[in-house]
Simulated assay, not measured.
Amino acid sequence: MTDNDSKNIKYSITKYLSMREHSCHELLKKLTAKGYEKSLCEQRIAQFSKADIQSDLRYAEMIVRSRVAKGKGEQLIRNELSQHAIAPELIELAITEQDIDWDALASDVAHKKFGSKPAKDWQEQQKRNRFLLYRGFSHEQIRALKSVR
């Protein structure tokens, strides 16, 4: 490895982080795809993390805010963050810091998609349930919606 590679990695990380937050996993994936040595990339990413320039917590918070704004449920958000190798305690912290009422969000998403009319039959109710499950809402949140209707 040359000193030039180290500078290029530093430049690339800086460029990526200037656009938006990235997880360590995401940065490593992008840098190794460019052909840089994995161990050198890990060292550089660790330096950025230590200096608090890169933060998995800030990345997780950004994802939570973004997905909630799009009407996604807690399970979908947790799965997405897990796929980015975010530590479970950081996922929990990012979600609890936002203080989200998941039942209200599920209700808003259902109302936006299906309106205020109740399902006309069992099949339509199942279609609505599948939609909400696909969006990442739990069975309990979906059942709570049924009692409101």
Results as ranks from 00 to 15, higher is better:
38 K>V: 09
38 K>S: 14
38 K>N: 14
40 L>V: 10
40 L>E: 10
41 C>V: 13
41 C>N: 09
41 C>R: 10
43 Q>K: 15
44 R>M: 11
44 R>L: 10
46 A>H: 12
47 Q>P: 04
47 Q>G: 08
47 Q>K: 15
48 F>P: 03
48 F>Y: 04
49 S>N: 06
49 S>A: 08
50 K>A: 11
50 K>D: 14
51 A>Q: 09
52 D>R: 15
52 D>C: 12
53 I>F: 05
54 Q>N: 06
54 Q>T: 05
60 A>N: 00
62 M>G: 14
62 M>H: 13
62 M>K: 15
66 S>Q: 11
67 R>Q: 15
70 K>F: 11
70 K>H: 10
72 K>P: 00
73 G>S: 02
75 Q>C: 10
75 Q>T: 15
75 Q>F: 12
76 L>A: 15
76 L>E: 14
77 I>P: 08
77 I>T: 13
77 I>F: 06
77 I>S: 07
78 R>G: 03
80 E>S: 11
80 E>R: 10
81 L>N: 04
82 S>T: 09
82 S>H: 08
83 Q>E: 13
85 A>P: 02
86 I>Q: 05
89 E>I: 13
89 E>N: 14
89 E>V: 14
91 I>M: 07
92 E>S: 10
97 E>S: 09
97 E>D: 10
97 E>I: 00
98 Q>T: 01
98 Q>N: 06
98 Q>M: 05
99 D>F: 05
99 D>E: 09
100 I>D: 02
101 D>K: 04
103 D>T: 01
107 S>K: 08
108 D>K: 09
